Simulated assay, not measured.
Amino acid sequence: MFGKLTAIRGNQITIQLDNELNHYKLAKWANGKQPTVELHVDDSRMISPDQRRKIFAMLNDMAHYCGYEARDMEAEMKFQYYIKTGSEEFSMANCTMSQANEFLTFLLDFCFQFGIPFKTRTWDMIPDTYPKAMQCLRHRQCVICGKLHSDIDHFTPVGIGSRKLVDHRKLYFECLCREHHQERHQLGAKSFIAKYHIKPIRLSEQDLINLHIMTRKRMNEIDERIEQNEEQQTRISINRDPI
């Protein structure tokens, strides 16, 4: 259903629906569960010159790498986008800002997934809103220059002992090529991050497993050990309490 947003008060909104909605129909759609809705605000603003420039820079890099003509590359990627999203056809000349952002995100995800390299100029144009640091870690690309087959670097020191004993879920990571990895050690972590304006991030449990940093078995062992220690501390505390 569609409607118009008529009021906003904190985290509560009022929507005037284009068609009437009765309780019977709502209950039927919700299948006996608590009804939920998704709010999608139509962005009627037109694609900006900056968005168009970034998209065409990406398409040109992809065309050069894949051996396509730039126009053919655009047609191919739009076709792939339509298949994946079910979107209607659009033109780069007059699509909306939200449509352009979605297509740009699709192109970035596609390049990371299939290892299509970016030129330095294109790499620097990736929007700050795009989760580049996470994609770089997942696909082993340097977060600074985009070089493939880069190193996963611990921003948080892990010490000299065995890394098998470390709970990597609590640590922060960045992906760096060999050259930038060496520079990071020369400058020190804080100076290096200040120079390149990057932000180390935590990895999800599934990403840690996929990247062979931790195993599910090791995570469970750590969780069991923590639980045992907490139980032991609780028993000690109870025994110390006066009767």
Rank of each mutant, 00 (worst) to 15 (best):
H180N: 13
K170V: 05
K78A: 11
K33F: 10
A57Q: 10
A7R: 06
R138T: 03
I198T: 08
R169V: 04
V41P: 03
K25A: 14
L59N: 07
N31R: 15
F2C: 03
F114S: 08
L171H: 15
E20Y: 15
S91P: 03
D223E: 13
L108T: 00
E76R: 09
L17M: 08
R178T: 12
F112P: 05
H197Y: 07
D153V: 09
S150I: 07
E205P: 06
I8D: 06
I238G: 01
L104D: 02
S191W: 01
N229T: 09
I144R: 01
I193G: 00
L137Y: 04
G161I: 11
T156R: 02
Y81R: 01
R121F: 12
V143F: 01
F106W: 05
Y172S: 09
E38A: 13
F112N: 09
R240E: 12
E230P: 05
L107R: 00
K119S: 15
M46P: 06
R216Y: 13
G115P: 01
H185G: 02
Y24E: 09
M134G: 05
Y24S: 14
D153G: 02
H181Y: 02
L108S: 00
M46S: 10
N101E: 08
E224I: 11
K195G: 10
I152V: 14
D128H: 15
H64T: 13
S98Q: 10
C136K: 02
V37Y: 13
M97F: 15
V41H: 08
T156M: 04
W29V: 14
R202Y: 03
H197T: 06
F110H: 14
H139G: 11
D61M: 07
G159W: 03
K195S: 08
N101W: 03
Q51K: 01
H181F: 02
E88Y: 15
N229H: 07
D151T: 02
S48G: 08
Y65F: 12
H212T: 08
R225I: 11
E76L: 03
G3N: 08
Y65P: 00
M219C: 07
L211C: 00
F112V: 04
I198D: 00
H212F: 09
F103Y: 07
E183W: 05
C136W: 03
R45G: 01
R163N: 10
L208I: 08
K147Y: 04
Q80I: 12
M125L: 11
N94P: 00
E38Y: 09
A133I: 10
K84R: 08
H197F: 04
T234C: 01
S91N: 06
A189Q: 01
Q34R: 13
T6R: 05
Q80C: 11
S87I: 02
M1C: 09
N229Y: 14
M134Q: 15
F192M: 00
P35V: 11
F56T: 09
L108G: 00
H40C: 14
E205M: 06
Q16F: 03
H212M: 13
D61S: 05
E230Q: 14
Y172T: 11
C177F: 01
I83L: 11
H149Y: 12
V143P: 01
F79D: 15
Q135K: 15
L17E: 03
I209N: 10
E74A: 05
M92Q: 04
G86T: 06
N229L: 09
Q135W: 13
G188R: 07
S204K: 13
M97P: 01
